[in-house]
Amino acid sequence: MTSPHMTTESKMLKIENIHAEVDGKPILKGLSLELKAGEVHAIMGPNGAGKSTLGYVLAGRPGYEVTEGSAVFDGRDLLEMAPHERAAAGLFLGFQYPVEIPGVSNLQFLREALNAQRRARGQEPLSGGDFIKLARAQANALGLDPEMLKRPVNVGFSGGEKKRAEMVQMGIIDPKLAILDETDSGLDIDALRAVGAGINAIMRKPDKAVLLITHYQRLLDYVRPDFVHVLAGGRIVRSGGPELAHQLEAEGYTEIAA
């Protein structure tokens, strides 16, 4: 019983030879990547390399069409699942540009979302009181005023508040795999530190994994990756340890990606 269970658990995400296009334009061209439980991977790369596309493809955004290849998440065919099913299976995408939703409060949205996930997994929905407690605790942990959770989703939030709010969502939802798309962009140094600490507290666990999509080294000072990959021209052109991020910062992408 234990050992087959362990094997599926340890292999969190396996992407093989993914090709994907948007509006008929090929963006990902044979990308392969493997994440095991307990690992943090960083994907770096120049603008237009396909970093955000990778996140969207994995989360199932309509219009991002996979033409070849496979992605297996926690033993299941990810590409067969609808976006909400991927979420319920434990995948979380942190958006580079979190979407504003007027008229829908954070609390209402997150409670419905969490309970939809719980129902999909055959768990009891969380009561109103328990949910509020959880939401407040996560907001406090990320340094976001819990009162802001009563406001419409991301409406009137500053860039930093939106990213903190994404991490509060992640804390409430408690996913297995977090794909964080430029979560560090637009953050001042305090917010960066808070967000970094949040990622570690929520996701640095033996049964979870993180894929950090980022432009810069600076987030990686707070969330130390086990592996760093360089994405260029729609595929991984180089992989290495944390030192690769420093090398990229020093030498630039052109040198490394060449």
């Binding site: 989360a59 199932g60 955004r61 309509p62 609808a82 976006p83 909400h84 991927r86 979420a87 319920a88 979380f92 995408l93 958006f95 979190p98 979407v99 939703i101 949205f109 997150l110 419905e112 979302a113 969490l114 939809a116 996930q117 999909a120 969502q169 939802i173």
Partner: peptide
């Protein structure tokens, strides 16, 4: 965009 955002958090369509 809003629909995808909500779906990505687990809400069925």
């Amino acid at each position: 965009q809003a629909l995808f955002y909500l779906a990505s958090r687990g809400l069925p369509q």
